[in-house]
Design a protein around this nucleic acid. Structure first.
Length: 446
DNA sequence: TCTGGGGTCCTAGGACCC
DNA sequence: TCTGGGGTCCTAGGACCC
C-alpha cells in the first residue's frame, strides 16, 4: 500500500511577512499582487473578516482600514527564499520529496511503519516551525488525492496540524461530508457537471462508475475516482525543467505609445530569458501577446498574439528580443490603450541533450503546417506573408488574427452532418465496444 | 482610478502519408 | 449527397492547479 503526505504551509505569504514582524501575530494580515491590485494571501484573521481570495484591493480598502489590517505588497524574493528553507527541512525526514508549489510538497512515505507516522509528522511540523518560523499542516493517506483531503482535515479540525487517514470507516464518514468541489482536480465547472449527474460529495464520487466519470471528465476525472478509492494513479514526480517560461504584467497605467509597449515587451523578454538560462534551456519559439483592459467595457477592446519560431533554439537575450519585436510590429495597432502584455518562451530544449535532431523535426513540420494554412485560409496566408516579410529574425508560423471561431464553426458544419456529441459517441462505440481501462492509461508516465 | 502571474495535462480535429 | 481506413504529428482550446 502506497503512502503519501502533503505538507502545506498555512497562509504562506502572510506567514512569511509575520516571520519578520512577530507583533502581527493574532492580527489580520493580507498580501497584495504585483501592482497592488488584488489580495492574494490572507491570514486566518483576515479570512474571518470575509475577505475573499483574489479580491480587488479597491473594493476592500475601506474594510481593511476599518479593521486595521496589516497590508503588504508582495515580496517574491523573500517568499522564494523561505520556501527553499522549508523544502530543505523536509529532506531530513524522507528523501522522497516532490516540491509541488511554492508552499506545498508531497512526501513519499512508503518505508515508514504506520504506527510511527503521526509522531514522525508532528516532529516534522515542529522542526519546520522552529527553523523557519512557518506553520504547516500535514495530511497523510494512501494516495495524493486523499492526502490533499487529509491535509484539509488537518487544517480545519485538528489542534496539532497533523491528520493521518487510516481508519476506513471514519474515512467513509468524512468523505460523505466533503463537497466534490473541494477535491483536488475538481473545480466549480466540473463540480456542476458532477452535480447534474447526482454526484455531490467525495463519497458519491468514490462510488461512481469510473467509466461514466471518464466520459464526463476525461481520464483526469477517472484517475480521481481511483485515487479516492485508495488506488494510486498519481506518482511522486521528479523536479524537472519547465516546458514553458512566461513573463507578463499588467501596466500600472495604460499605454498608447508604441515605443512604451516595445520597452515593456523587451524587458519581459529579458526577464524570461534570465529564467531560461537559469534552468539551462534554450527556446525554439517565443509567443507574444498584448491586450487592452478587459474590465473597461466602455473602451474599444483589442487583444492579439503571435508566435515566432526561432531559426535555432537560443538563450540569447538579444536574439529573443529581436524576435519579440518582430512579432510586436505585427501585433501593434494605433488607437488603443494597452493594459497588459507578456511573452512566453516555448519549445524549450535542454542545453545538454541531442536537441539538434529534435529541433530539425520541428522545422520540418512547421514548413508543412504553413503549406496547410495556405490551403485553408487566404486571409491567414496574406497575413503570414506580410509578417514574414516584416521579420528580420526568425520565421513566424502562426498568428491568431484571422482565425475566427466563426470560421471554425462554419467549416465544421459543412463537413459533418451530426452534432459533435453524437459523432463522439459513435466513434467511441466503434473504437472500443468493450470498455477496458489499462493501468498504463491511468498512471501518468512522464 | 483601481480588478495577478505563473504553470500543467488532455482531447478533438486537421493535415499528411500509405 | 455521397465519397476508405489506418496511422502519426501538430495545434487550439478547454480544463485544472497554486
Amino acid at each position: 500500500m502506497s503512502c503519501y503526505a502533503l505538507v502545506d504551509c498555512n497562509n504562506f505569504y502572510a506567514s512569511c511577512e509575520r516571520v519578520f514582524q512577530p507583533a502581527l501575530t493574532g492580527r489580520p494580515v493580507v498580501v497584495l499582487s504585483n501592482n497592488d491590485g488584488c489580495i492574494i494571501a490572507r491570514s486566518d484573521e483576515a479570512k474571518a473578516l470575509g475577505i475573499p481570495m483574489g479580491a480587488p484591493l479597491h473594493e476592500y480598502a475601506p474594510l481593511l482600514k476599518r479593521q486595521k489590517v496589516a497590508v503588504f505588497s508582495s515580496n517574491y524574493a523573500l517568499y522564494g527564499d523561505i520556501s527553499a528553507r522549508v523544502m530543505d527541512q523536509l529532506t531530513f525526514f524522507t528523501p522522497d520529496v516532490e516540491v509541488y508549489s511554492i508552499d506545498e510538497a508531497f512526501l513519499g512515505l512508503d518505508g515508514f511503519t504506520p504506527a510511527m507516522l503521526p509522531d514522525h509528522m508532528r516532529q516534522l511540523r515542529r522542526s519546520i516551525r522552529q527553523w523557519t518560523g512557518i506553520p504547516v499542516s500535514v495530511g497523510v493517506a494512501p494516495t495524493k488525492t486523499l492526502a490533499k483531503l487529509a491535509n484539509r482535515i488537518a487544517k480545519k479540525y485538528t489542534s496539532d496540524g497533523v491528520y493521518v487517514m487510516d481508519d476506513p470507516e471514519l474515512m467513509t464518514r468524512i468523505l460523505g461530508d466533503i463537497e466534490v468541489e473541494d477535491i483536488w482536480g475538481i473545480s466549480k465547472r466540473w463540480g456542476a457537471r458532477l452535480r447534474r449527474m447526482g454526484i455531490g460529495t467525495a463519497l458519491q464520487l468514490r462510488q461512481a462508475s469510473p467509466r461514466q466519470i471518464r466520459q464526463a471528465l476525461s481520464v483526469v476525472g477517472e484517475r480521481i475516482v481511483h485515487e479516492l478509492n485508495g488506488r494510486s494513479c498519481l506518482a511522486l514526480e521528479e523536479i524537472q525543467p519547465r516546458k514553458t517560461i512566461m513573463s507578463s504584467r499588467s501596466f500600472g497605467t495604460m499605454i498608447s505609445n508604441r515605443s512604451d509597449l516595445e520597452e515593456a515587451v523587451a524587458s519581459y523578454t529579458a526577464r524570461a530569458a534570465e529564467k531560461l538560462r537559469r534552468q539551462r534551456s534554450r527556446a525554439g519559439g517565443i509567443y507574444v501577446f498584448i491586450r487592452t483592459n478587459r474590465f473597461r467595457q466602455q473602451d474599444p477592446q483589442y487583444s492579439n498574439a503571435a508566435m515566432v519560431g526561432m531559426d535555432e533554439a537560443t538563450s540569447d537575450t538579444a536574439k529573443l528580443i529581436r524576435a519579440a519585436m518582430g512579432a510586436l510590429r505585427h501585433l501593434w495597432r494605433a488607437g488603443y490603450r494597452y493594459h497588459k502584455a507578456g511573452v512566453m518562451l516555448t519549445d524549450l530544449v535542454d542545453d545538454h541533450g541531442d536537441q539538434a535532431s529534435l529541433f530539425q523535426t520541428h522545422l520540418y513540420t512547421r514548413g508543412r503546417d504553413m503549406a496547410a494554412e495556405r490551403k485553408t485560409s487566404d486571409r491567414r496566408m496574406a497575413a503570414l506573408d506580410q509578417i514574414n516579410a516584416a521579420m528580420g529574425q526568425g520565421t513566424l508560423f502562426h498568428a491568431t488574427e484571422g482565425l475566427t471561431p466563426g470560421g471554425h464553426h462554419h467549416r465544421e458544419k459543412r463537413r459533418h452532418n451530426l452534432p459533435k456529441a453524437e459523432r463522439w459517441r459513435m466513434r467511441a462505440q466503434f473504437k472500443s465496444p468493450a470498455y477496458t481501462t489499462r493501468w498504463s492509461d491511468l498512471v501518468r508516465v512522464r
